[in-house]
């Protein structure tokens, strides 16, 4: 299974909660947030552009890092 790996400039739990909420609101996503490393791993039916746009709604810097195979 491949997951999309994103960088999101999160600094605290408020940030990761905000990311959680915008992704829940989008729907159709499975995701893990790695707050210390500022990474978000997403498995979704949506394309990368949609996901990146959604992450950027939090007002934080975000960028796409690539595919990552998850265990």
């Amino acid at each position: 299974l491949q997951k999309h790996e994103f960088f999101v400039d999160m600094t605290c739990e408020g940030c990761s909660n905000a990311v959680t909420r915008v992704l829940h609101r989008l729907g159709g996503v499975n995701f893990d947030i790695d707050l210390p490393n500022k990474k978000v791993y997403i498995d979704s039916e949506h394309n990368v552009d949609t996901l990146l746009e959604t992450l950027k709604k939090t007002g934080k810097n975000a960028s796409y890092l690539g595919e990552k195979s998850a265990q």
Binding site: T11, C12, E13, G14, C15, N17, A18, R21, G59, K60
Partner: peptide, 16 residues
Amino acid sequence: EGMTCSSCVQSIEQHL
């Protein structure tokens, strides 16, 4: 609700 630190505050201020 949901802000925990000054960076949360800043991101809202900047975005709005």
